[in-house]
Design a protein around this nucleic acid. Structure first.
Lengths: 239, 239
DNA sequence: CAACTTTTAATTGTATTATAAATAGTATTG
DNA sequence: CAATACTATTTATAATACAATTAAAAGTTG
């Protein structure tokens, strides 16, 4: 899917970004100096500095004379950046992160469904229907369940006709991947779960925005409740 | 407020980012080549390339050999990046953009209030109360209404105890500024509007998450409705 | 002519070296 | 001790050279 050629600058940015998200460099930590990064990675200062600038642009680090390169407070991280999200995925996402993802998915996806039903443009409806078809095929093993599910959620965001919701496709996709990693059970494998998705689609197609909103909300709340339970179980076991 | 020293790289990145958001360079357009940017701005290629990398990291442009530097499709723009949001503000935000902002503010701020009420940590409650106090002073002209209002919304996001909501403070702040720009009327200047904010605070303080959610939702829906009306009026006048 | 291949040239990618600027820490001074 | 000056470290900027990529032009072939 990826396997695109990355130049040296991007390779270094990717490697450092990943390490920051993995906690190899923690908030407040100093990264190696430019000179050290050059020797460690065997690349020029040009490439090194450009990588540093890219991570700075994504809000992960700061770089100042004499002070060096440091990981900044996480509140400055651009958590909705597609690269940062992918690096998060390469880290060790835990149940608490999954909860944070779900807490935001809940209102966003519900409102996106609401807007999708409000606009209900033909191209968008077709796209959602196509994703649904893939999901149905997946129940017979003829397609990839996870991929189809992700596409379904993405098409609804696209149908919101709002650039901010559309930009959040990266966020939702990563959230779904974290969810998948913790349990395959929250994904529509059964016909029941498939039907819940069909219902949302029907509401959107019918232009019933409130019903589309409610149907999405119910599904999301159920998913969140399961995770809350898992967290509780985990914390009880720990004490 | 700002007036911090910007180095050459940051100055160029800022200038180009601003121009892209202003539409001086449109999607698909080529920016001047590195060499041209160097001469135009009278800076070295080092600084120029670093600025290009920063804008690339924010998803605004792509830069490839022979092809040059081009503005990429807006769906790739990191609309939740604090710099991008500020550049949007320097552009010419219209009513449609304001609607897009409000459509996302609505579910996010409602859910943030819900979570704030759920966690209701003392420090967060105090912070919200402090913002409220500023708003009250503002009704007497003893403080800045807009600043106080922005602080109120920010403290609720902080109180969600969710890093994703917290990162959205930039987004909400920009949304509020766009709102302010279009009309001073949607901001709590009257005691009635101030009271609506107090109500939300009380619900959060009491841990009544559903009430906090509903109270926020009602306010947001009212604001959105006003903008929808303005858009309708505008479109009717145009036809 | 049409399809394919090669060449060319424009542009970014990387490396190297040198110097300037900022600043944390240290030393000095009154 | 407080204020100041010095020093050394690190990033910021510049300049130059060459490599790699690739769109477009030129050439080749059937």
């Amino acid at each position: 899917m990826e396997s695109i050629h990355l130049n040296l600058t991007q390779q270094l940015a990717h490697d450092l970004g990943k390490k920051i998200m993995q906690g190899s460099y923690k908030v407040g930590d100093s990264l190696p100096s430019e000179a050290d990064l050059c020797t460690q990675y065997g690349i020029s200062r040009t490439a090194t500095r450009e990588a540093v600038k890219m991570l700075t642009a994504k809000g992960l680090i700061s770089s100042r004379p004499r002070q060096g390169i440091k990981v900044v407070e996480s509140k400055h991280w651009n958590l909705f950046d597609v690269d940062v999200l992918n690096w998060i995925l390469l880290g060790k996402p835990d149940l608490y992160l999954l909860r944070h993802f779900l807490q935001l998915r809940l209102p966003i996806e519900s409102e996106a469904a609401y807007l999708a039903a409000q606009y209900k443009q033909e191209a968008d409806i077709t796209a959602i229907e196509s994703a649904l078809a893939r999901m149905k095929n997946a129940t017979n093993g003829q397609d990839d369940t996870h991929e189809a599910d992700i596409e379904f959620h993405q098409t609804i965001l696209s149908a919101s006709n709002n650039p901010f919701f559309i930009q959040l496709k990266n966020f939702i996709t990563t959230a779904l991947k974290v969810n998948i990693r913790f349990t395959n059970r929250m994904i529509p494998v059964t016909l029941d779960e498939y039907q819940a998705h069909v219902d949302i689609f029907e509401h959107i197609k019918n232009g019933d925005s409130q019903a589309a909103f409610d149907a999405t909300l119910v599904t999301q709340k159920a998913t969140l409740a399961i995770v809350e339970e898992q967290i509780l179980a985990l914390e009880n076991k720990a004490s």
